[in-house]
Amino acid sequence: MKIIISPAKKMQVNSDILDGTGTPAFLERTEELKECLASLNKDQLKDLFQANDKITELNYYRYQNMKLTENLTPAVLAYVGIQYQSMAPNIFTTDQWEYVKQHLYIISGFYGLLKADDGVVPYRLEMQAKLKTKNAKDLYEYWGDSIYRELIGDKKEVIVNLASKEYSKAVQPFADQDTPILTCVFGTLQGGKVKVKATEAKMARGFMVSFMARENAGNPEDLKKFSEGGYCFSEERSDMWNYVFLK
């Protein structure tokens, strides 16, 4: 199985636990995006990011001085969002680290696709940002099907989708019947319908990654045992490629 997750906006530099040993698959294309972003002024970046002055200033400085091969942090340690806090990769055992290095992939608007131990630098660029490049009107067009092709490689495996719609959209439209995508939904029942709360879902996705790593999950059936954060697999509301967990 291959697991896809979203990145987080907030990032850190952390090379104390594990060196960033991997090289992102699309580093040359990331360099192109960096140059494009470095050519924008602060007002243009603020509009692109839809962010405040402090965040804009920080990332303007980042892009003006960014070197993609220095001061690297393993990707799964670089992101500091809710999902990553609940995943807690900083306390992974050696076996858990090996599991995520083999199975976990992070979809990124800036890097395209990252393995857990790929070395990255802090950046800000959401997949849905309307960044125009020389040959594309936005990042979805820029990456096209390349993220999906890199993800599946030569081996057809089930893709466990723990990413938000913003990021899974870079993969799902290109999948064929030979590459099944299993989407996990985390929610509560309200009025007979499954209601997904963004913050709780992010936490649950992180819990699921750590659960899979701890249990060395190897097939979809293993996911049904997940019960962290008060969630329980709902057989009646799930189907073959949509697993619903209710709290």
Rank of each mutant, 00 (worst) to 15 (best):
E57G: 06
Y79M: 03
D53S: 14
T73S: 10
A51L: 00
L72A: 02
Y60N: 07
Y60M: 12
Y63E: 03
N59H: 11
N71L: 04
T69D: 15
L68N: 12
Y79S: 00
Y79W: 07
D53W: 12
N65L: 08
V76G: 08
A78T: 01
N65E: 13
L58Q: 02
D53T: 11
N59Y: 11
K67R: 08
T73E: 09
Q64G: 07
K54Q: 07
M66F: 07
L72K: 05
I55P: 01
E70W: 01
M66T: 14
E70L: 09
T69G: 01
N65Q: 13
R62A: 11
N71M: 06
I55A: 09
R62I: 09
Q50S: 15
V76M: 15
A75E: 11
Y63G: 08
E70A: 09
P74W: 11
K67V: 08
D53G: 05
L48T: 01
F49T: 00
K67S: 10
T73K: 01
Y63K: 03
Q50K: 13
R62N: 05
Y61A: 12
L58M: 07
Y63V: 07
A78D: 05
R62G: 06
Y61G: 08
A78K: 01
M66C: 10
P74E: 08
N71I: 02
E57R: 10
D53V: 15
Y63D: 03
F49K: 04
N65H: 15
T56W: 03
L72C: 04
E57D: 14
I55L: 14
M66R: 03
A78H: 04
Q50T: 14
Y61L: 08
Q50A: 11
V76E: 10
Y60Q: 05
A51G: 05
A51C: 02
N59P: 11
N52D: 14
A51I: 04
L77P: 11
V76T: 14
N59S: 14
A75Y: 09
T69I: 02
I55H: 02
Y79I: 06
L72N: 00
M66A: 15
K54G: 02
A78M: 03
K54W: 00
V76A: 11
L48R: 01
T56V: 15
N52V: 14
L58H: 02
M66V: 15
Q64N: 09
L58E: 03
K54S: 09
P74V: 08
K67F: 00
V76S: 13
F49G: 00
Y61Q: 12
Q50Y: 06
N65D: 13
Y61V: 12
A78Q: 04
P74F: 11
A78I: 05
E70C: 06
T73H: 10
P74T: 10
T69Y: 00
Y63W: 12
D53R: 05
F49C: 03
A51W: 02
K54Y: 01
Y79E: 07
N52Y: 13
E57N: 13
N65V: 12
I55R: 00
V76D: 12
L77I: 06
T56Y: 07
Y60G: 01
N59G: 10
L48C: 01
Q64R: 10
Y79Q: 01
D53L: 08
T56I: 13
K54A: 14
Y63Q: 06
L72T: 07
F49V: 07
P74S: 08
L77R: 07
N65R: 10
I55Q: 01
